[in-house]
Amino acid sequence: MTIRRPANGREFLAGAAAAIGVIIIVVAITMSGRSVALLNVSYDPTRELFEEYNQAFAAYWREATGQAVSIRQSHGGSGAQARAVVDGLEADIVTLALEVDVNLLAEAGLMDANWRDLLPNRSAPYTSTIVFVVRAGNPKNIRDWDDLVRDDVAVVTPNPKTSGGARWNFLAAWAYAESRSGGDEAVTLDFVRRLYANVAVLDTGARGSTQTFAQRGTGDVLIAWENEAHLTVGEFGAGAFEIVMPSQSILAEPPVAVVTRYADARSTATVAEAYVEYLYSAVGQRIAAAHFFRPSDPDLVDPEALAAFPAIQMTTIDHFGGWAEAQPRFFGDGAIFDQIYLPAP
């Protein structure tokens, strides 16, 4: 008993894939002679930011050195991207959502353990924070974290286990509950449990959550990174959604680093270092702000562009003892996040 047709289809696909592979290799070989190529392995929400930044950097580098540089981008979930690099994806630069993901590379010997100290602002050229997106007119009158535990509110946020970015969402809620309860862990846990009991859909990634909320009419409030929130509002028009700033949030610091082992092997270390350093220049900061990431050096950016970033009270990851402590405490196997989903005994 054979199934002939699917096999043919697969053979065709395999053939096509091989052909495309060969074309890519040929193109890569012909390109490599004339210019230097960088691979920036990044996470999902930076797609538009680096599209613009790469052009700006290429222009700057040609001006400064006369060398043409082409930058390839790879986007995906932050943790999966980090593992891909550990498993041999030869990235010159990583620009990820979490310090722990870059630490994974350092542990694998791909860069120095002190990578965080090599660039200003602890290697975070831009930061962000966690905000709410609600439907136009804010029909459920959602103002702050307290409204998210109300019985009549459905929340959309990604699973912090599969989405590195969503760990900031969780910690923002935790930090708020903690300061409200005066540091009582049981009360804090109960608040966060009630919040996640209101979660209608726990998508695997941030873009999935945005789709669920914006395109499929699910939920009353989306917990999102500030830059994603602005992107969503911009994409669907200001008439469809509104951004609500909670009274308190967290300072999300997505780090950047040169993967020195790969960059050295590929002789791209100089240009890769210039690439991450240029993110701190006026041009880099302006582009980051234009894509709604908070510039690490606001003085380099027009005050008008800064109007999108109201000052709110922000906790930092240091409050949780850094990622090295926060990761196992909240997101390890059987840790706090797993506990809030345990069925009642």
Partner: peptide, 27 residues
């Protein structure tokens, strides 16, 4: 499935999804 699932643990989390979660939990 990840695009049509609610993804809530114990409710309708599928095994491949749990595998991805386990991958994120440890190196």
């Amino acid at each position: 499935v990840v695009f049509v699932s609610q993804g809530l643990p114990y409710v309708n989390e599928i095994a491949p999804q749990l595998i991805v979660i386990k991958l994120e939990e440890s190196a």
